[in-house]
């Protein structure tokens, strides 16, 4: 089966190159096409490890991780 795209809310501090664009109708396609080539970083650490010292990736920077930040918070 094809690796599913995570649907949980991603962390507010997860960043990738595409985080900064507004790709409108094509955002999900971009995420899918660039999936395994996307490099992520954490805005809190400015590095590839999150505050919990685990790696950052869209598949795990989700609600439930201890350092997760709500993207909808004020």
């Amino acid at each position: 089966m094809t690796t599913p795209t995570p649907t949980q809310a991603r962390c507010a501090s997860l960043r990738s190159k595409s985080s900064y664009g507004a790709f409108g109708d094509f955002h999900e396609e971009l995420v899918e096409i660039m999936g395994a080539t996307t490099t992520y970083w954490c805005l809190n650490t400015m590095g590839k490890a999150g505050p919990d010292e685990h790696y950052v990736h869209r598949s795990i920077c989700q609600q439930g991780r201890s350092c997760w930040e709500n993207p909808d918070a004020d």
């Binding site: 690796t3 949980q8 395994a36 919990d52 685990h54 790696y55 920077c61 609600q63 439930g64």
Partner: peptide, 22 residues
């Protein structure tokens, strides 16, 4: 991963993360 929210279909074993599969 810090209490939940682990990989969704993208495993990590040792230093190997993946596969991302299509």
């Amino acid at each position: 991963a810090g209490g939940g929210g682990g990989p969704k279909g993208v495993p990590q074993v040792g230093n190997v993360h993946g596969p991302q599969r299509k």
